[in-house]
Amino acid sequence: MKNQKRWVLWFFLSPVLLWLVLLIVLPQIDLLTMSFHVENDDGRMVWSFANYLTFFQEPIYWLTFVRTAVYSILVTFLTFIIALPIAFYITKVAAPKFQGFLMMLLLLPFWVSELVRVYGWMILLRESGVINHFLIKLGLLNKPVEMLYNDATMIMGLVYTSMLFMVIPIVSVLESLDNSLIEAAYDLGADMWSILVKIIIPHAIPGIVSGSIVVFMLTLGNYLTPNLMGGKNSLWFTEQIYNQFIASFNWNQGAAFGFLLLVLSSLVIWIGLKLTKQNLKKVVQ
């Protein structure tokens, strides 16, 4: 009986284990060892910290790294600022029969691939794009302005891409918020701001944190949006990794960069959890 149980457990666990070990753990270990190797003068691979040293010695690399980290945090924060009122409106203000429709509206853009959505933005924003066309027609501009390829546009694109992943967890925590708590706070003399800070946000914090983790990781690891909307003016660290692997064909350097990004995201999330006094187990639920 006991043996049989164990057999069943292994049977169902094995696909997951295989997937984890073969596709994630093994390649990562391989990349990790790769990141500590460099080619010596004889053309042979030897153990070395040189790849990591290069990162710290070349300002372009670590500047991009810091930039990516700071902008990812900024994007996460902006997404939260926009998502909270949306989630609040959907759960507490909109009529119940309207809620499904609003969620549908949120989901709809995600039926289209990210690439197509980003190209949509490019059609709107580029120098010969729709917005410039109308602004000139209306006489507000004399000559077209390039709205693509700057930090602001790229951040807007990243926020737009991440929106849904913040709204959905917040919607689900706000649904469990008893309306009478808000009314009670209002009745006890709280104004809108203190209701938000003392009641709504403390209640929604698990959803906010899990949404933030997802948005932060997606943003940090995003390649498409920074590449297409930010262009050469707004470098993203993933582009550096891509360049090492594909353009320079320096897999060792690329692997080192990849691990630095992994450390960065783990570190930022750990700090975030500590600051909000949440633990990962609770947030993941």
């Binding site: 008893d178 009478s180 708590l181 009314e183 009670a184 706070a185 009745d187």
Partner: peptide, 10 residues
């Protein structure tokens, strides 16, 4: 001040 049916303690 109002005491709610389900009290609404925070």
């Amino acid at each position: 001040n109002l005491i709610f049916q389900h009290l609404a303690l925070f």
